[in-house]
Design a protein around this nucleic acid. Structure first.
Lengths: 296, 296
DNA sequence: AGCGGTTACGAAAGACGTAAGGATG
DNA sequence: CATCCTTACGTCTTTCGTAACCGCT
């Protein structure tokens, strides 16, 4: 009756099965027999008095109870790992860190920026997923979520990395030579998630100016917007970190040096446990420093 | 080599031994043989690669590593309990909640106030420790810490329950009959931890008045101060909740209705885990509501 | 000398893997 | 019908309690 299974191992198998959606696959991962996984799962369900997974022969799906457990299980496992790692101090970091980040931020800045981290910690695997859709953190098995704008999940610990400066840029040849430009009269290219047709800018004193535009082009992809601007389609609001080199080499110009769009916060979110595995803490620390330097 | 011990049980025994400062006592508590405890402790130490406790024949003391582990171990155990309780929903709460609270707050308000909670949850034991010294939360095995003033421990989650109103009270017969009193000229009784010889009061507009007094009496005990005031030794600054009934029945009067001392925050602190056992959450919720009603 | 922690040993319990059974797409 | 999960069974590992041993006050 008293299952002498290690409760943390039980959670571990549970998480593995949930991730692989298969008992057999989890068994291979964990290097045990498949019946063993089956028994452990059954034992966990018996212990909690709840059905965690609905098994059909060709798929395994979490019940609502299972979904609830998933986040807690991952956290508990992580906290145990943190304990083991802390006492075995000085040891080299190892394991996998799963990161979700916005496409734009990830493919240019972040992935490049982690090269040094990867060299420093050769046994750590970083698994990047670049996507812009809001995620259900708890269900993803994600260790570290980077997001532009507020993080809509109060089960997470959020740290603001930077507030990115955004400015109006255009291709130099497509702009009037006169110093003063009528921003509202220019053709605009807008970046989907952040602007509608309403542009709001602030000068150094914090005074706002608002005007409507009917964009010549709109896209949810920041690279597409930049390309369009370079080719003279119009002007756009883009983050400074993204256009810094283009500004330096003259491909783009700061159309309205006195005006800036509201700064957008870049946040880093971690699961809310009291402790996290050392590899996760180290990665978060590293990426925070990197972003602070580059985006601030 | 592969210790098949349940890691959470290992932590549980470790905590028990730390609390009882004895392997034998812990064994009795846990209803296992004493050698079993010895083995589990050894297994945990082997697993973490650290000596957790220094055992002499008549005492067991934690090493620094052991001290570090203690808080984490308690948290992990609590979080597992939270998992078990959440799934076994609707179940009746059980177990022990250890509370540390200031003497004054505890012996009058709090302990009385929990009567209904105790009735609602007959299987929950509440273990009150009333003391005013700052505690090392992590080492105490405390679930819930009530404190007046800021909580100097960033490993805790703090919730402000109330900001208590404090007013100048005196015994009616010992006061001049005239409406206007010169507060600085009255004899004072001061409450140790909160006042020195410098009294600062605010009127409704938030304007401050400061004056020095040389107290006729000083004490760190709020009951002693109240007694002295009632017997006409002098006036004192006391919290409204504490003197409310004395004000109602005329034993004390509000000496300076236009002036109030700065409100003192009453905080509730819990260990910072993502989840806590249901009994702890329930207790915290209850005591917070109670204090909000009575102290606000 | 007594109390308390560790080590030794036999016994019992439980978890594992292999193999058979059953359900589903 | 093939795949995947569950149940059955025998083996083996591991933990448990009892008992002897050792150290400290």
């Amino acid at each position: 009756m008293t299952s002498r299974f290690d409760r943390l191992s039980l959670l571990d198998t549970f998480v593995r099965v949930a991730e692989r959606r298969s008992l057999s696959a989890a068994a291979r991962d964990l290097d045990v027999s498949q019946p063993s996984v089956s028994r452990q799962l059954a034992a966990l369900e018996a212990r909690l008095g709840v059905v965690l997974m609905r098994r059909t022969t060709h798929d395994v799906t979490l019940t609502p109870d299972g979904l609830d457990l998933l986040a807690d299980a991952r956290r508990l496992i992580g906290e145990w790992e943190a304990i083991e790692e802390r006492t075995a101090e000085g040891g080299t970091l190892a394991g996998r860190v799963r990161v979700i980040a916005p496409v734009a931020l990830g493919q240019s800045l972040l992935v490049n920026g982690t090269a040094r981290f990867m060299k420093q910690h050769p046994d750590v695997t970083v698994d990047w997923q670049l996507r812009d859709d809001p995620i259900r953190f708890a269900e993803e098995g994600c260790d570290c979520w980077l997001k532009v704008g507020p993080v809509p999940d109060d089960t997470l610990v959020v740290r603001e990395l930077a507030r990115v400066e955004r400015l109006v840029v255009g291709a130099p040849e497509s702009l009037p030579e006169t110093g003063d430009v009528d921003l509202a009269a220019l053709p605009w290219v807008t970046l989907g998630p952040f602007e509608g047709n309403r542009i709001e800018l602030f000068n150094r004193e914090g005074v706002a100016t608002v005007f409507s535009v009917s964009p010549r082009m709109a896209s949810d992809n920041i690279f597409a917007v930049q390309q369009a601007v370079r080719q003279g389609v119009g002007v756009a609001i883009l983050p400074r970190w993204f256009v810094a080199s283009a500004l330096d080499n003259g491909m783009l110009v700061d159309v309205a040096p006195d005006w800036r769009a509201a700064r957008l916060p870049v946040n880093l979110a971690l699961a809310a446990g009291a402790r996290r595995p050392a590899r996760v803490e180290a990665f978060a620390e590293y990426i925070a420093a990197w972003c602070g330097d580059r985006l601030g």
